[in-house]
Structures are given as structure tokens and as C-alpha cells.
């Protein structure tokens, strides 16, 4: 296999000689960066204040916040998982279906076949692992576009879910799982929120404080540069797709534990919100990069907005408007920010 590294040789002269040196507008740029970093958090706070003023009895209740934080943990975990392959430069469209399948397998094995819940949970995670491995093999080893490979695998997983469940919602999941997910509360917030938080901290640590995180960043941003710098980009992309598969199956377990049942169409509607949150999150905190805290803020910003609007009596279509709109606005912002950078470098 011959790689396509550019061998150089004379070519048309490039007339892009710029002089380096600290720019006079460094200060204004720093301010712009600061605003960009914290804008999403600020807007989230404003949103909470506005809804709290409008709906002081419902929105501004401890209970509302506690349930919001708990119930969105599933989406948070799914979104954090998605962030990993996006960082290394691959899509994973199978996460929603993996969530459904893992939740369904746990419900079927535990409630219908009376397997011990611990074993059923292990099988559920194993499913995420297997789908992740297949995604990674297709994408990295066989060089199929991740968009296509994971779209196909996701559809296969959705088909298996319908098959094993006979297209029914399966309930009767063991209390042990329910307790492990929502049975305990810390500061009034269900334990599942803290699972998401732990993963968020772990990813933040890996992304920002390990050489693995740096290598992942380079793999996503400049695969050829990374490869030529000795980064094993295949292994990193492989690991990223496996990670998103496993985290999607874990969020499936949270789903089964939260509702005590599995619905064959549980995960698919979460795919778009997950994308919206990752991209929106990439405009905050470490702006321009997919990052865990930005993602965390984005997940809760979006769900706060939706909860608030629903409390105002706006019907459920608002969810689609909100998530779809957020995805588009996020990528437009990212694009504009990039263009602003490019312009700054021209002069």
C-alpha cells in the first residue's frame, strides 16, 4: 500500500509570506476568545433565570432541577461517548441503536429469561463492545467511511432489537438494576447523574492531561501529521469507535434502570440531540474542540430550554426545533469562528 505523502519537488511559488510577531489586536482577540469560551454557560444561566422568573413555581423548584440532572444522564453519557470518535475524526451513527439494543437485551434476558441481572448487564455491555469492534474494523481496517459503516451497523442493531423484543416494550427489569441507577440520591440527585459526571471527569483527564488525549486530537485534526509523527492512528481510531460503542451500551443500561423496562425505539431519537450537544459543546470552554465540559453544559443547556418551554405549555414539537436548530447554529458558529481566524492570519 503506497501512502499519499507529498514528495514535494518544485511547484508554483507560494506568495504567502507573512511576518510573525505578536499582533496588535492580540488583546481584542483574547477578549473574543474569552467571550466565546463562556458564552454558552452564560446563555444557559440567562435561560434558567428567564424561565425561573416566568415559571417560579414549576421551573424554579429543586425538584425540577434534580429530575432534570438525573433524567438527562442517559443523553449525557451517550453524548460523551459520541465525542470520542468525533475527536479522532470518525462519526458514530450507531450509538442510538446500540442504546436500544443493550437496554432490550438486558430486559429480555433478565425479565423474560430470568438471567441474573449482573450477567444480563455484562451481556448488554458486551453488545456495545461487539458493535464497536465491528464499526472499528469496517472503518479502520477496511477503510469504509465511518458515516456509512456506522449507519449500516446501527440499522442492523435496530433490527436485532425489534427481533429479540418482538417489537414490544419489555418491562419487569430487576430492582437491583433500578436501584443501582436511580435508587440512591446524592444531594437529591439520582445516582445516574454521577455516573455521567464520572465519565465526564475521566474524559476531561484523558483529553487534557494525557499524551493519549493529545494524540487523539492530532489524529482527528491532521491524520497525516499524526501518522508521520509516530502516532498509531489506526489503533487510536479503533479504540475511539469501541469506546463509543461501550458507552452507548452503558447508557442503555441507565435507560433500562431508569424506566425499569426497555422500549425498542428508545435510543434512536437521542442520536440527533447527542450530535447537537457535542457540536454545541465544541463552541464552549475549549472553543473549537470537542470537549467534555462544553458537552456537559450543552446537554443541560438544551434540556433546560426544552423543559422550560414545555412547562410553558409549548407542545412537543419544540424538542425537534430546539435540537435541530442547535446543531445547525453550532456548526455555523464553528465555521464563522474558523473563518475569523483565517482572516486574522491573512493580514
Amino acid at each position: 500500500m503506497t501512502s499519499d505523502i507529498d514528495l514535494g519537488g518544485p511547484r508554483k511559488p507560494t506568495t504567502r509570506t507573512r511576518e510573525g510577531g505578536a499582533r496588535s489586536h492580540t488583546k481584542s482577540r483574547n477578549r473574543a476568545n474569552f467571550i466565546q469560551r463562556w458564552a454558552l454557560l452564560g446563555v444557559w444561566v440567562v435561560l434558567i433565570i428567564v424561565f425561573s422568573v416566568i415559571e417560579p413555581n414549576t421551573f424554579l423548584s429543586m425538584q425540577n432541577f434534580q429530575s432534570l440532572l438525573g433524567s438527562q444522564a442517559i443523553l449525557l453519557l451517550l453524548t460523551l461517548g459520541l465525542m470520542v470518535p468525533l475527536t479522532t475524526g470518525d462519526f458514530d451513527l450507531s450509538i442510538g441503536s446500540v442504546l436500544s439494543l443493550s437496554a432490550m437485551v438486558v430486559a429480555v434476558l433478565n425479565a423474560q429469561h430470568h438471567w441474573p441481572v449482573g450477567l444480563a448487564v455484562l451481556v448488554g455491555i458486551a453488545i456495545g463492545l461487539v458493535v464497536g469492534l465491528v464499526n472499528a474494523t469496517l472503518t479502520v481496517a477496511l477503510r469504509i467511511d465511518s458515516l456509512i459503516a456506522t449507519l449500516g451497523m446501527g440499522t442492523v442493531a435496530a433490527g436485532i432489537t425489534l427481533w429479540v423484543s418482538d417489537s414490544q416494550t419489555i418491562s419487569g427489569v430487576s430492582d437491583a438494576l433500578i436501584n443501582a441507577v436511580v435508587g440512591f440520591r446524592l444531594f437529591g440527585i439520582p445516582i445516574e447523574f454521577y455516573y455521567g459526571l464520572i465519565v465526564c471527569v475521566a474524559l476531561w483527564y484523558v483529553f487534557d492531561h494525557t499524551s493519549l488525549g493529545r494524540r487523539m486530537l492530532f489524529t482527528g485534526r491532521g491524520r497525516k501529521v499524526a501518522r508521520l509523527s509516530g502516532v498509531n492512528v489506526s489503533r487510536i481510531r479503533f479504540g475511539a469507535l469501541v469506546t463509543s460503542g461501550v458507552l452507548a451500551s452503558v447508557s442503555g443500561l441507565l435507560y433500562a434502570g431508569t424506566s425499569g423496562a426497555a422500549n425498542p425505539g428508545a435510543g434512536e431519537p437521542l442520536l440527533l440531540p447527542a450530535f447537537a450537544a457535542v457540536f454545541l459543546g465544541s463552541t464552549a470552554i475549549s472553543s473549537g474542540r470537542f470537549n467534555p465540559w462544553g458537552t456537559f453544559i450543552a446537554v443541560y443547556f438544551l434540556s433546560s430550554g426544552i423543559t422550560g418551554l414545555q412547562l410553558l405549555g409549548v407542545s412537543s414539537f419544540v424538542q425537534n426545533l430546539f435540537y435541530g436548530g442547535a446543531l445547525i447554529i453550532a456548526v455555523v458558529f464553528a465555521q464563522l469562528a474558523r473563518r475569523r481566524h483565517a482572516r486574522n492570519d491573512e493580514d
Binding site: 505523502i5 507529498d6 499524551s211 493529545r214 509516530g230 473549537g288
Partner: peptide
């Protein structure tokens, strides 16, 4: 290897100089 095409093979232009230069020796900072 210092590659010929800097934009494609040499640097990731929107990452820091530090990240670009330290990439092959990152493990020494762990």
C-alpha cells in the same frame, strides 16, 4: 522526517506551536 508539504504533512495549523512541536516526544512529559 521533515516532510515536503508543510500544510498537509508537517503541521496542524490551528493547534498551538507547543502541541505541534511536542507530538513525537509527548511521552517524555508524562
Amino acid at each position: 522526517l521533515v516532510p515536503a508539504n508543510r500544510q498537509e504533512d508537517g503541521v496542524v495549523s490551528d493547534l498551538s506551536v507547543r502541541a505541534n512541536v511536542s507530538l513525537p516526544v509527548l511521552s517524555t512529559f508524562m
